[in-house]
Design a protein around this nucleic acid. Structure first.
Lengths: 243, 243
DNA sequence: AAGTGGTCTAGACCACCAG
DNA sequence: TGGTGGTCTAGACCACTTT
């Protein structure tokens, strides 16, 4: 299980662990480069790389001549919350159901290995599920999961628990990437979602990272007539908008 | 003007300049670390840092044993941020242009008054703009603006400054609402965006509040083939996700 | 003066890929 | 076999801040 890990990555993990666990609160000073050199028995360049990358990633801030500090974690905006579709539908007072279309192990190909940022990846879990609201298909979920991060993924019966719930319980989500596109459905999608060929769809593509590795890649397809993505949120007090 | 610049930054700038200018197209091999060592008279670690950072920033991709290459820059728009589309396009090294279709004062109707949460609203600013990337329409902006919040809105010439930039400069953004839908284009949209009737589009509807009042309501229409919405963010260190 | 981060060097070893 | 990227070291000089 435990891959050979570069030294700078070990240092980063150690620091992140302390931040995530709450042991090091925002504003707290983290070990200096020289202190890391001693405690990890590494060169200063390696310690520097760990602190520099964590700074670039937004976890730390550095002040020359003073030290390195845990940064306030910015309020997360909510357009793309990881909502559990079953709960979302239940919240609207409707009946949730699902149909499991595919569930199994598939061989990786170069494109999938690239998506998972892991050349060595040989096999992946793959599931396809249709989620229904009052019996009407509203979402087609096509998901690949990294077996090394969630080895027991296929043990679940996804009629009772959604894949999202399983994954959230199994691994922390450190980072999310979303892409939203408009598409016309493939013939298979038309069949599974029971829609016309000219019904436009929203395709939400999402990658989730856990501990610096891609845990799952999913494409969610929504018929336009039955679903829209929505969010509303207050902006952060500092008004931090790009430009 | 010319600040003292670290060596790795000079190397990064040199490479970015070549990418932005189009001299180095996507897929093209960039100089190897050893080649940079020779041409810039730097150490390999410095060359490595430049290439590694540009890779982390999404400009390059590296393949061990093979080389470093200019990455495709897909047209992607951040969902979460209020990005200025002109800067976004410029950032990709492409040419931004726009066509002003409509600009003026319109009477409010009940639906608009409802959207602006202000029954007393009598008139509104209205603009329609087509934004182009390398001369190709990529976004249709249909925007209403609350005159009481941005009285001088129409004084601007939107060929030089985008409406987003004008609004961000004029009022703080306190709250945002987004809805994303997939649509098929109306005939007018087909004409303005120069797309086929069967080209699906993303419709991003956004309301912005400033000081508890709706400042602007905008619908941004993107042809699916030319644009996707994109966001990537780190989750809060404490892992605060809904559900 | 001592400690901090910011940068840089000139080597090194390794895994990987190509011809 | 030679080139590539990936990592690491043990030094170094600098500007800066704190004591």
């Amino acid at each position: 299980m435990s891959e050979a890990q570069p030294l700078y990555a070990k240092v980063k993990d150690h620091i992140l662990e302390n931040i995530r666990s709450g042991a090091w609160e925002a504003g707290r000073r983290v070990p200096s480069e020289n202190e890391l050199v001693e405690s990890f028995r590494i060169s200063r360049m390696t310690a520097n790389r760990a602190l520099r990358e964590l700074t670039a990633e937004g976890f730390l801030s550095r002040v020359p001549g003073v030290g390195t500090f845990v940064k306030e974690s910015p309020a997360l905006s909510s357009l793309m919350e990881l909502r559990n579709i079953a709960e979302e539908i239940a919240q609207r007072g409707h009946r949730y159901s699902s149909r499991l279309i595919r569930k199994g192990l598939v061989d990786a190909n170069p494109a999938l290995a690239e998506e998972f940022e892991d050349r060595a990846l040989k096999q992946l879990f793959h599931i396809v599920i249709v989620h229904e609201e009052n019996g009407v298909p509203v979402q087609l979920e096509d998901r690949h999961v990294n077996p090394s991060l969630v080895p027991d993924f296929l043990d679940h019966d996804f009629t009772e628990t959604t894949p999202t719930a399983v994954l959230l319980a199994a691994t922390p989500v450190d980072e999310l990437e979303h892409t939203v596109e408009a598409t016309l459905p493939t013939t298979e999608q038309q069949r599974l979602l029971n829609i016309a060929a000219l019904e436009p769809c929203l395709a939400l593509y999402r990658r989730s990272w856990s501990r610096a590795r891609v845990a799952t890649v999913v494409t969610l397809t929504y018929p336009a007539s039955r679903y829209a993505l929505y969010s509303r949120h207050r902006t952060n007090a500092r008004g931090t908008f790009s430009q």
